[in-house]
Simulated scan of single mutants.
Amino acid sequence: MIYHLLYPLSDTISVFNVFRYITFRSVYAMVTALVLAIIVGPTCIEWLRRLKVGQYIKECGPDHQQKSGTPTMGGLLYGMCLLVSVFLWADLTNPFIWLCVFVFVGFGLVGLADDYLKVVRRHNDGLSARGKLLGQILVALGAVSVLVALPQYSTKLMVPFFKHLHPDLSWFYIPFAVFVLTGSSNAVNLTDGLDGLAIGPAVVCAACFAVFVYVAGHVNLANYLQVAYIPGVGEVAVFCGAMVGAGLGFLWFNAYPAQVFMGDVGSLSIGGALGFVAVLCKQELILAVVGGLFVVETLSVILQVGYFKVTGGRRIFRMAPLHHHFEKCGLHESKIIVRFWILSILLAVLALGTLKLR
C-alpha cells in the first residue's frame, strides 16, 4: 500500500522515485517485518499462553520435558508480520506476489488445522498424514496450475552448471513442482525440533532466494548470468525480504531457550513458500543445495524408517531426525543449533556460487 500511495507522487516529487526500486522495498519490507515482530511478539505470546496452546512433548524422545507447555502456533506471529509487510511494500498488481501469498496462507491453514487438533482439541496426532499431505497437494496444485498458465512462465527445467541443458517438462512440470512444494514444506516441518533450528536456516534460504528472484526478474543480470529471465518475478524479492525480517523477528523469541514455538502453522507455510519461490525463479534443483540442511534431516527420517522395516527393528541413527541423533550422542542443544546454522550459510553461499558456474 505504501508503494501504491507514494510511488505515483514521483512524477511531481522526485524523492519518491526510490519506491520503484525493488532492492529498496525489499530492505524495508525486511525491516518492517522484523520491527513489527519484536513489538507485537510479547503480546502474541501472552495471548497464546492464555489460550493454553502449549507444546506437548513426547516422552520417547530426548529429555525436553522442561519445554512442555511452552506456547506453540507462533507461526501466526510470523505470518501476520510477513503479510503486513508484503501488503505495505510490494506491488500488489504483480501476480507472482499474490501466488506467493496464496501458497503461504494455504499451507499455513493446513498447519493451523493440524495444530488446532493437537493442542486445542488435545488430539495428539493432529491431522492424519494422508489428510495433511492431501491439503498440501491441493494448495500446491492450485498455485502451480495458475503459474504455468501465465504467458511469461516456462515449463523448462534449468539444470545447474549446464547452460544449454533446459529440458521442457511440459505438463509433467506440474506434478514435479507440486512435489517440490510439498517436499520443501514437510522438510522444514521435520527440522523444526529444537529452539531456532528451523527458522535460522529458513531465514538464510529466504535471503538466498531473494538474490535468485531478483536476478531472474532483471533482464540484463539474467542474460549475463545465463539464467531464465521471467518478467515481473523480481518483485518476489520483496516477499523474500519480508520472510527474512519476519524470521529474524520470530527468532528473537524462538532462540534457545524458546519462549514460543512456530508449530505446523509456521513450518508448513514457510517450507511451502520457500519451495514456491524456488519454482518461480526456475531454481527448483538448487533448492536441494540452498535447503540442504532440510534435505539431510528428511533423508535421515526416510533412511531410519526404511532400515528399521527392512532389518526388523535395527536403526542407523540413535534417533531421527538427525538433530535428535546428535542430542543422543551428548551434544548440547544450543551447539547443534548453531552448527546447523553455520552449515546452512555455507550451503547458501555454494548455491549462490552456481550463478557464475555455467
Rank of each mutant, 00 (worst) to 15 (best):
V204A: 04
P201E: 00
L221I: 12
A202E: 11
S185W: 01
C208F: 04
L181P: 08
L194K: 02
V180C: 10
A222Y: 11
A202P: 02
V180S: 12
N186H: 04
S185Y: 03
V178G: 09
V213K: 08
A207P: 08
G196E: 05
V213M: 05
L194P: 02
A206Q: 02
V178L: 07
V215Y: 06
A202G: 08
A207M: 10
V211K: 09
H218D: 15
F212I: 05
A210F: 03
G217F: 11
H218A: 15
A206C: 10
V203W: 00
N189C: 05
S184V: 09
N220E: 15
L190I: 13
V188W: 05
G217H: 09
G217S: 12
D195G: 06
V219I: 13
N220W: 12
L197I: 06
L194S: 05
A198D: 01
I199E: 00
D192I: 06
A206K: 02
V203C: 07
Y214S: 14
V204M: 11
V180P: 11
D195P: 03
A216W: 04
D192C: 05
T182C: 15
N189E: 11
N186F: 00
A222W: 02
D192H: 04
F179I: 14
A207V: 07
L197N: 02
S184P: 04
L181E: 10
P201K: 00
T191P: 01
G200F: 09
A222R: 03
A222G: 12
C208S: 15
V211P: 09
S184Q: 11
G193Q: 05
T182R: 03
S184Y: 04
V213A: 11
L181C: 12
V178W: 07
G217T: 12
V211Q: 08
G217V: 11
I199Y: 00
V204L: 04
A216K: 04
V215A: 10
F212N: 08
